[in-house]
Write a protein that binds this DNA or RNA. Structure first.
Length: 729
RNA sequence: GGGCGGCUAGCUCAGUGGUAGAGCAUUUCUUUGACGUAGAAAGGGUCGAAGGUCCGAUUCCUUCGCCGCCCACCA
C-alpha cells in the first residue's frame, strides 16, 4: 500500500512532471497516440522575448493550456504553436533605456552595432521567457518553437509586402503622421494617446481678423486664414481674396479660404492653418490645394523660417514669440485656462508632433484587384458572417465600430530593431524597387547602379499580423511538415482585449488577404490582471505579484486555479494572494481525498469503463448523480468558454459533495462488509473522474496523483493522464 | 462628441422569468486516524433608482443616477 504525505508538496512535483510530459512527446500533435484526425489548433500570442514574466503571461498560458489539454483529452490532434516576439518598438524602447543608463545612445551608434547588441540582448532573455512558460505548465509544442525574426517568417512577410505593393494596397505617401521626437520615429494612431492639459490660448490680430491658437510657435508660415462660409461677420470676403497682414517676422501676403470645417463658435471663429504640423489643417490644405511648409524639424527645433527663433525648441520659443507679438501690439488677449487634449507618445509621454514624412501605408478601404472587397470589408464580413466569432459579443460591437472608422495604416517605422522594408530607390530616376532578397543591383527602369535602400523597418504588427499562417507555413519550410494544410484555419485565438485592434483586427484582414480564409474561428479575449483593489499592477505602486515567486510559494496549480476561478471572458481579473492561498488549500483537499482513498481502497476496479458501478445506498446514488451532472456541466461550460464556471463546478463537487458528504458516508459503509466493495469502487471512480476533470486546470497535482494511483495498481493499464480520455456521461 | 460595459452579502465576483449564490472576511463550537491548509453551525442582500411588459422581474423593455473603459478630437 502506498501512503501519501499528509500535505501536498508542489515543490517536489512540478519540475519532474513537466519533464515527463516534455519527454513523452505528447505536446507534439504528430506524436500523440491513437488515430487522431480532427485538429485543434491555438497559435500562442508570442510573448515579447525581452519581457520579464508577469501575471498576464500566467493568465494567457492558463487559459490556452486549459483549452488545449481539454481537447487533447477529448482525442483531438492538438497543436499549441509557441513562439517569441522581437516586439520591434517595445523592445527597442527597453533597450534604449538600458543604453541610457550606461550613458550611451543609439544616435551615437552604428546601425549594425546597435542591431547586434539588441539581438544578443533578446536572445539571452528569450530563454528566460520560454522557461517561464514551462513553469506555468504550458503544454505547447516546443519542437515547433519559432521567433518572429526567423528567416522563414521574414520571407513570408516580404511576400505579403510584395503582393500588396503589386495589388496597389501598399503605397508610399507624403501624408501627415504622428512623430515622436524622443524615439525619432513615426507612430500609428494606436501608439499615441491623449492627455488633458491646461495651457494658455492666445488671440492675435492677423490683418483684419482675430485668430486663436494654443501653439503660436507653429504659426510662422501661416498664410491662409480660414473662416466658415456662413460667417456673417466676414460676408464681404470671398474665397481666394488676399490681403497683407503684419505678422511675427514682418508682413505676409495672406489668402482667405472659406470652409465649413471651421467652427464659428470656437475661439474667434477664424483660424490660420499649419498644414505640415496639424492633421486637420493638412486635410484642409489637401482639399484646397494649398502650400505646405515645415516649421519644426524632426528634433522639435524651429527651422530658419522662424528667423531669430530658428534652432530653438518649440516650448522655449513659445513665450518669446508671444512677447514679440505683444510688443508689436498684435496680441489681443490670452485665455489662461484653456483645457484641451494633447497627443503624446504612449511609451515616453513626449508630445507628438504631427509631421509630413514619407511613410508606407496599407490601404484599408480599397477593393482588391482580384474583385474581392477591401481589407477592412473582408474583416467586417468575417464578423457578420460569423466566420470569426469573438467571445462575449460586446467585443464584436467594439470591433465593428473601430473597423468602420478605420484609416489607412502606416507600417513603416524609423527604428532599427525590426524587419527592414525590402525596398530600394533609384537615385537617378526615383523608381521604387521592391527587392525581397537583396538581389537587385541596378535599376530595372534606367539601369542606374545608384540604388538607395529604404532605411525603415516594419511596424511589428505588420509581421505579427501574419503570425497564424506565417508560423505554420514557416514550419513547413523548416521541418518539412504540412502544418498549413493540416492546421489552418486555427480554432481559437486567445489574447488580451487591449490588443484587439493592434493585433486581432490585423490578423483577420491579412489572413483573408493572403490565404482567403479566416485565421481562427473564435477569438477569446481576456482582461487585465489587477490587484484586489482593481488597481493596475505596476512596479511604481509596488503591487506587482511575480508569478514565479507565487509558484514557488503556493504551486503552479494554485495560481492557475485562482486566475481562472472567478473571472469571465473579457472582464479584468482582481487577484489577491489570499485567493491563491485558498486554491492551494483546494489542491491540498484533493490530495487528502486521494490519501484517504489510497488508504482504504485496495482493489482496482477494472475494467472501469465497463460499468458494474451502481449505487446501493442513498449516498451512493446521490454521489453518482452529482458526479454525472458535474461531468456534463463542466463539459458544456468548457465548450462555451466559460472556464470560470467549469472551475467552480468542479470545485463545488470535489469539496462539498465528494469530500464533505460522500467521503464521510463512506466511513460507515466501508465498515459494513456488504457495502464495502461497492463503496471502494465508487470512491475510486469518483476520484479518477475528478482528477481527469481537473487536469486541464491543475495539471501537476492531477498528473502526480494519476501516477500514484497507477503505482498502487488501481488503474489497470494506463499511460500519462495528459492523454487520458475525457469523461463522458 | 460617438460607442461599450458595470452597479448582487463587509470585500472580490458568479448567476437566473418562478421563495438569492461562491470564495475570502466575521462569530461560535469541534484537536474521532483523509485533510486544523480542516470540519460543524451561524449572521449578513427590498440584486443602483423609478416606471413598463407579465400570473410573477434581480433577470426583458424604457428613463434616470453614479462608476469605469474604448474610439475620435476643436484651431
Amino acid at each position: 500500500m502506498i501512503e501519501l504525505d499528509k500535505a501536498y508538496d508542489h515543490s517536489t512535483v512540478e519540475e519532474k512532471i513537466y519533464k515527463m510530459w516534455e519527454t513523452s512527446g505528447y505536446f507534439n500533435p504528430d506524436k500523440l497516440p491513437g488515430d487522431r484526425k480532427q485538429p485543434y489548433t491555438i497559435i500562442m500570442p508570442p510573448p515579447n522575448a525581452n519581457a520579464p514574466m508577469h501575471l498576464g503571461h500566467a493568465l494567457f498560458v492558463t487559459i490556452e493550456d486549459i483549452l488545449i489539454r481539454y481537447k487533447r483529452m477529448q482525442g483531438y490532434k492538438t497543436l499549441w504553436q509557441p513562439g517569441t516576439d522581437h516586439a520591434g518598438f517595445e523592445t527597442q524602447v527597453v533597450f534604449e533605456k538600458k543604453l541610457e543608463k550606461e550613458g550611451r545612445s543609439r544616435f551615437k551608434m552604428q546601425r549594425e552595432e546597435f542591431y547586434k547588441e539588441i539581438w544578443e540582448f533578446v536572445q539571452s532573455n528569450k530563454h528566460i521567457t520560454e522557461n517561464g512558460l514551462r513553469r506555468l505548465g504550458a503544454s505547447c509544442d516546443w519542437d515547433r518553437n519559432i521567433f518572429t525574426l526567423d528567416p522563414e517568417i521574414v520571407r513570408i512577410v516580404y511576400a505579403t509586402f510584395k503582393k500588396m505593393h503589386e495589388d496597389g494596397l501598399m503605397y508610399r505617401g507624403d501624408r501627415i503622421g504622428n512623430w515622436c521626437f524622443k524615439h525619432q520615429t513615426a507612430l500609428s494612431d494606436l501608439e499615441t494617446k491623449y492627455e488633458e492639459r491646461v495651457e494658455p490660448f492666445y488671440y492675435f490680430k492677423y490683418g483684419p481678423f482675430t485668430i486663436g491658437t494654443s501653439r503660436p510657435e507653429t504659426k510662422f508660415g501661416d498664410k491662409y486664414v480660414v473662416m466658415h462660409p456662413n460667417d456673417k461677420r466676414y460676408a464681404q470676403y470671398k474665397n481666394g481674396d488676399t490681403f497683407e497682414a503684419e505678422w511675427i517676422n514682418g508682413s505676409i501676403k495672406a489668402t482667405i479660404i472659406k470652409d465649413e470645417a471651421v467652427d464659428m463658435e470656437f475661439g474667434s471663429g477664424v483660424m490660420t492653418i499649419t498644414p505640415w504640423h496639424d492633421p486637420v489643417d493638412f486635410d484642409l490644405a489637401q482639399k484646397h490645394k494649398l502650400d505646405k511648409e515645415q516649421i519644426i524639424d524632426k528634433f522639435g527645433k524651429l527651422l530658419p523660417i522662424a528667423g531669430e527663433f530658428a534652432g530653438m525648441k518649440n516650448a522655449i520659443a513659445r513665450p518669446l514669440i508671444v512677447e514679440k507679438l505683444k510688443n508689436k501690439t498684435l496680441l489681443v488677449k490670452v485665455d489662461e485656462n484653456y483645457k484641451h487634449n494633447v497627443n503624446v507618445c504612449y511609451k515616453c509621454g513626449a508630445i507628438i508632433e504631427p509631421q509630413i514624412i514619407p511613410q508606407w501605408f496599407v490601404a484599408m478601404a480599397k477593393p482588391l484587384p482580384d474583385g474581392r472587397p477591401s481589407l477592412r470589408d473582408m474583416a467586417i464580413n468575417a464578423i457578420k458572417n460569423k466566420e470569426v466569432e469573438i467571445v462575449t459579443e460586446k467585443f464584436e460591437k467594439i470591433f465593428m465600430h473601430w473597423m468602420e472608422n478605420l484609416r489607412d495604416w502606416p507600417v513603416s517605422r524609423q527604428i532599427w530593431w525590426g524587419i527592414p522594408i525590402p525596398v530600394k530607390y533609384c537615385v537617378d530616376c526615383k523608381e521604387v524597387i521592391v527587392d525581397t532578397d537583396d538581389s537587385i543591383k541596378v535599376c530595372p527602369k534606367c539601369q542606374s547602379p545608384k540604388l538607395e535602400k529604404d532605411q525603415d523597418t516594419f511596424d511589428t504588427w505588420f509581421s505579427s499580423g501574419q503570425w497564424p499562417y506565417a508560423t505554420l507555413m514557416a514550419n513547413d519550410v523548416k521541418r518539412g511538415t504540412k502544418d498549413f494544410e493540416n492546421y489552418f484555419p486555427t480554432q481559437v485565438m486567445e489574447t488580451g482585449w487591449d490588443i484587439l485592434f493592434f493585433w486581432v483586427a490585423r490578423m483577420v484582414m491579412m489572413s483573408y488577404y493572403r490565404t482567403g480564409k479566416q485565421p481562427f474561428e473564435k477569438v477569446y479575449l481576456h482582461g487585465l490582471v489587477r490587484d484586489k483593489d482593481r488597481q493596475k499592477m505596476s512596479k511604481s505602486k509596488g503591487n506587482v505579484i511575480d508569478p514565479l515567486g507565487v509558484i514557488d510559494t503556493y504551486g503552479c496549480d494554485a495560481l492557475r486555479f485562482a486566475l481562472i476561478f472567478s473571472t469571465s471572458a473579457g472582464n479584468d481579473i482582481p487577484l489577491a494572494e489570499d485567493k491563491i492561498k485558498g486554491m492551494k488549500h483546494f489542491a491540498n483537499k484533493l490530495w487528502n481525498i486521494a490519501r484517504y482513498i489510497l488508504a482504504n481502497v485496495s482493489v482496482p476496479i477494472p475494467p472501469l469503463a465497463e460499468g458494474g458501478l451502481g449505487g446501493v445506498t442513498d449516498a451512493d446514488k446521490e454521489i453518482l448523480t452529482k458526479l454525472n451532472q458535474t461531468i456534463k456541466n463542466t463539459t458544456v461550460h468548457l465548450d462555451n468558454f466559460r472556464l470560470h464556471e467549469a472551475a467552480q463546478e468542479i470545485y463545488q463537487f470535489t469539496w462539498h459533495e465528494l469530500a464533505d458528504i460522500y467521503v464521510e458516508a463512506s466511513k460507515k459503509q466501508l465498515a459494513d462488509e456488504t457495502l464495502k466493495e461497492n463503496t471502494q469502487k465508487l470512491l475510486l471512480h469518483n476520484l479518477i473522474n475528478i482528477i481527469k476533470l481537473l487536469h486541464p486546470f491543475m495539471p501537476f497535482i492531477t498528473e502526480e496523483l494519476w501516477g500514484i494511483l497507477g503505482q498502487a495498481d488501481l488503474l489497470g493499464r494506463h499511460d500519462l493522464l495528459i492523454i487520458e480520455k475525457w469523461p463522458i456521461v
